[in-house]
Design a protein around this nucleic acid. Sequence first.
DNA 1: AATGAATGAGAGTTCATTCAT
DNA 2: GATGAATGAACTCTCATTCAT
Lengths: 213, 213, 213, 213
Amino acid sequence: MAATPVRQRRKDARPQELLDAALALFVEKGFAATRSEEVAARAGVAKGTLYRYYPSKDELFKAVVRDKLSVHIAESAAQVAQHQGPIAGLARQMMQAWWAKVGHGNAGVVCKIMMVEARNFPELARFYVDEVIRPSQSLVGGLIERGIRSGEFRAVPVEATVHMLIAPMLHLLLHEHSFGAHGGCHEGMSAEQLLDAQVELLLHGLLARAPGT
Amino acid sequence: MAATPVRQRRKDARPQELLDAALALFVEKGFAATRSEEVAARAGVAKGTLYRYYPSKDELFKAVVRDKLSVHIAESAAQVAQHQGPIAGLARQMMQAWWAKVGHGNAGVVCKIMMVEARNFPELARFYVDEVIRPSQSLVGGLIERGIRSGEFRAVPVEATVHMLIAPMLHLLLHEHSFGAHGGCHEGMSAEQLLDAQVELLLHGLLARAPGT
Amino acid sequence: MAATPVRQRRKDARPQELLDAALALFVEKGFAATRSEEVAARAGVAKGTLYRYYPSKDELFKAVVRDKLSVHIAESAAQVAQHQGPIAGLARQMMQAWWAKVGHGNAGVVCKIMMVEARNFPELARFYVDEVIRPSQSLVGGLIERGIRSGEFRAVPVEATVHMLIAPMLHLLLHEHSFGAHGGCHEGMSAEQLLDAQVELLLHGLLARAPGT
Amino acid sequence: MAATPVRQRRKDARPQELLDAALALFVEKGFAATRSEEVAARAGVAKGTLYRYYPSKDELFKAVVRDKLSVHIAESAAQVAQHQGPIAGLARQMMQAWWAKVGHGNAGVVCKIMMVEARNFPELARFYVDEVIRPSQSLVGGLIERGIRSGEFRAVPVEATVHMLIAPMLHLLLHEHSFGAHGGCHEGMSAEQLLDAQVELLLHGLLARAPGT
DNA sequence: AATGAATGAGAGTTCATTCAT
DNA sequence: GATGAATGAACTCTCATTCAT
């Protein structure tokens, strides 16, 4: 029995279309300032239809976070496991990759929004800590430990160094999505240039002896 | 035991009480979610009284920023101007002082709030950039330039380094006030210890030659 | 007997019902003293519904003006354009028609309201001048000029005469809606009789030679 | 016992100063838009002091009306009683005098405000009808009757003619104080010129035979 | 299932009035 | 008596959510 497949397909695609629309708007205007009617409109449906799929604006938000972050978590872990040779190069490469894939794009906004709204959505915050923050930290932490064990890095305190590596990226992210539009932060340099400079500085402090600096 | 009088005239004390109440609520619920009547209630006055002192919710927020942040920036600027001798020590001391005075206390939440609400309140964002971000950046930037000129620091790119110095503090701040309540970030170390370790790492990368490391 | 349903969807009927309700309340209490919620209640809808149709109280008022006044001006203009023969008769007829349609009914109150509220709502005043006063004046002015050109009227100053023709109607209107309720103005005569007598008097002063007076 | 006379005098003058301030503001901004604090400020006292003299804003308004209108009523009556000779000249003169003294000045605004606010202050409206409107009408009415009896005027209906004489002045008044500020009414002519032209037109219609027109 | 008209709890703000000083 | 800080009811407008169609 051939049903109306186009209609059917649209209906199946609805949840994803709504999530995409919601993310785009949350990025543009933040969670509070985004009206649910706008989300529906951008997804090409009417207000009431949105509520058929997500019973409230809060639930919609949770669904967006879950949808947009789950993807990027495992990827990097695989990359690290495969890597051979000096850690410094890997670290350099990972930070650049992270910025390209996550920080720069929409997924990065989810991080920013998550920080912004964590207080309002405790349950979601827990989810985020478990699914994103902790894995990321242990990934970077493992990297550093490997470097220390191999003698490539100084015997720095691991946890603090993890923060040092993650902080500038998140900082950049927050600026881009908070004050970016209002100028006045890092006028001369692109985000990528800033990040490069920061990684170099960090590695300079991290390496046991900087061979050719 | 006389019950608290229904009406009191305490013109001088009101502004500070209102700012404290506002900050406390902004911390708890964010700017957007805090109703002006709540601020008044927490300060022990009626809704209308708030508007006698601050003509709008936006102005109240600005006053909080000025009261809780601008002060510390000015102080640090004075400290920097007076300082003689190596920059590294000054930087170490300033970051510790900042965390103690701002980051650790409620004042730091203003930073977090601002990042959260910047998109929704563009005018506030502009104000914050002018009042807090730019002054902080030029303060730290000047510090680094002095270090480079004196030969104490390597010839690092100033702007990126400014970010490197500021980022870990804000990162810490955001975690404390976003996910802090939900555990799971830096379990073993106190914020102060983390910060110390990070400063050391940064300076290690910054100093022209690390004399006795 | 079914009770009136709690919720009804009657998109087409709402605007007119809201305008009627608004006019009735503006008549009773003036513009400033009428709360938008009352308008909605009298139209049998909730507060929010009003704003679905008219985005602000000001726009509601403008819509009332357009609905209750602009229509009649356009009608009269058409009537004037079509008219052949002596102007005196047309003038007589127009004034009577205006009183019957506008002055006598609730629509006339819009004029009164506008005079009352002009100072408090400058933007509405401008709108009213553009939408009602100027068109009316040019309508009557054109009439008089035609009469003068054809030799039917004396060469009176047009602008002043326009005022003379409009003034008694507005005067009547103001009395009806200001002191009308409190008695004591023109006890013996009906408004229509008054108006007739006034028109005759005016025309007597206006006609080049009163043929059969 | 010489008390402090300056202070005493100021205190005695207070009510009048408050009424003057109130009138000035009612003229500028209307009743509703005038805040009681402004009235007090213009009179050079504090908000609370106003309430010592007039127990509410409404009572203040009533006092203003009573104070500003009572003066001008009797004057004209005396003038009419004295007059000898043709009525037309007297009428011309009275209208000009009325505009100069009342219409143009602050007293005129009271008339305008009274019309505006009559609905809100029924008791005051009754006062106004009895003290101002009826006396004025019988004054003008008597004038016309005299003219008719003497054969100077045609046998026009008195009441309607009274309206005709009063209407243009009030109309002018209302325009000056309603839309005057917003342009668009009688651009080319001054109020005085308009009034002159209108009187001429009226008398032209009124005189039994216009001797030398 | 989809729509969008209708709802109504609240939000920020104003200002006449009160009353502690 | 005078002051002006304090009050709180009232007002306009918004928007997440519901539900008749």
